[in-house]
């Protein structure tokens, strides 16, 4: 068991009010991240991964509303903080990395100008020292010619380089937690390997915790200590990484693991999960996975099952396991 929680998300609920109706993007989600722990959230597109991470930082789009829950970070509820307090925390104690580095960088400022800003603001470094530190960071991230790069503009760099710069900015003030939302999804595999390597090094050297969001079960297996599987805005299963891969329980988790082709496997056909994810504005009272589930029972159509612990730290939301858990 890892040390006590650095971040604790409790009963988080975020909804969007749209013409179609209420989109329950994050539907009563709870989990925690320990010191120096890497927690991965995995699931298909639209299941609420990004909105979960954005809710933590009060960064959700305007039509969205956080309607319930607590996000405790180092003893304080982030959801009760003012925008100003949150902004201070962000870039100081919590660093964020997104899928598209271009969306977080300003095209009219040089890399250097954007890197020194948080260093001056949060670490109160002089301009000169901030530049020096920025250059060190660039070198640390394996980018050659830091003195040249620092004066370049974002569009002059490749996606892989920009993502490294984003990591540089995220770690520049020695954060305790890094939130990375699909940081390698837009990158080629050889570049992804570089970035994952850097994240692992950072964790070791700076003792940070990481919340890593991805849809790639391969990335999860390599990076995670603890895994959260989301489906239709809900956590359907969560557990330590070894457990999740050797003893997956939820039919959806099992299906995801079986549906992915593996190198060296060479099967005739792939396992498929029939159908598609439900519309989050039209959720019924059944288990949200019911219309795609091979094991559906009568009870599954009555109510979405609650998340229940089946072994140490391993919980699943499925009626197939309720008997066992109660036993």
């Amino acid at each position: 068991m890892l040390s006590e929680a650095l971040l604790e998300v409790k009963n988080l609920e975020t909804n969007f009010y749209t013409e179609e109706g209420v989109v329950k993007a994050v539907n009563n989600v709870s989990f925690s991240i320990g010191e120096q722990e890497t927690v991965c959230i995995v699931g298909e597109s639209g299941c609420g991964k990004s909105i979960t991470s954005l809710s933590i930082m009060q960064l959700i789009p305007e039509s969205g509303k956080i309607e319930n829950g607590e996000v405790n970070f180092a003893g304080r509820n982030l959801l009760e903080m003012s925008k100003k307090e949150i902004n201070r925390l962000r870039g100081n104690d919590i660093g964020m990395i997104f899928q598209e580095p271009m969306t977080s960088l300003n095209p009219v400022y040089t890399i250097g100008q954007q890197m020194i800003e948080p260093l001056q603001e949060h670490l109160l470094l002089s301009r000169k020292d901030a530049y020096k530190k920025a250059q060190e960071l660039i070198t640390l991230l394996g980018i050659p010619n830091s003195e040249k790069i620092i004066n370049m503009y974002p569009h002059e760099l490749s996606g892989g380089m920009l993502q490294r710069i984003m990591i540089g900015i995220a770690i520049s003030c020695n954060p305790r937690l890094i939130i990375a939302d699909e940081p390698t999804t837009a990158l080629d595999v050889t570049i992804q390997a570089q970035i994952l390597d850097i994240l692992r090094d950072i964790k070791k050297e700076l003792n940070t915790s990481i919340l890593l969001i991805t849809h790639d079960l391969g990335v999860v297996a390599e990076m995670a200590d603890y895994v959260i599987v989301m489906y239709a805005g809900k956590i359907v299963e969560r557990g330590p990484v070894m457990e999740m891969y050797t003893n997956p329980q939820h039919p959806y988790t099992k299906g995801l693991l079986k549906a992915k082709p593996l190198i060296g496997e060479r099967k005739e056909s792939l396992f498929t999960i029939a159908g598609q994810v439900p519309n989050l504005a039209e959720l019924s009272d059944s288990c949200y996975f019911a219309d795609r589930c091979e094991h559906r029972m009568d009870i599954c159509l009555k109510k979405h099952p609650e998340l229940k612990e089946t072994s140490a730290n391993h919980s699943v939301s499925c009626y197939l396991y309720e008997g066992e858990a109660v036993r």
């Binding site: 394996g142 050659p144 490749s158 892989g160 380089m161 080629d188 595999v189 050889t190 570049i191 992804q192 390997a193 570089q194 994952l196 390597d197 790639d216 079960l217 391969g218 990335v219 999860v220 297996a221 390599e222 995670a224 990484v241 070894m242 891969y245 050797t246 693991l257 992915k260 593996l262 190198i263």
Partner: peptide, 25 residues
């Protein structure tokens, strides 16, 4: 060989030597 070694394997029990290529294309 480098490409093959860069593909993440969805099994936490598998640990292997990875060839990390330097730089960009």
């Amino acid at each position: 060989k480098a490409l093959l070694s860069a593909v993440p394997i969805p099994d936490p029990r598998v640990k292997r030597e990875r060839i990390i290529l330097k730089g960009d294309i």
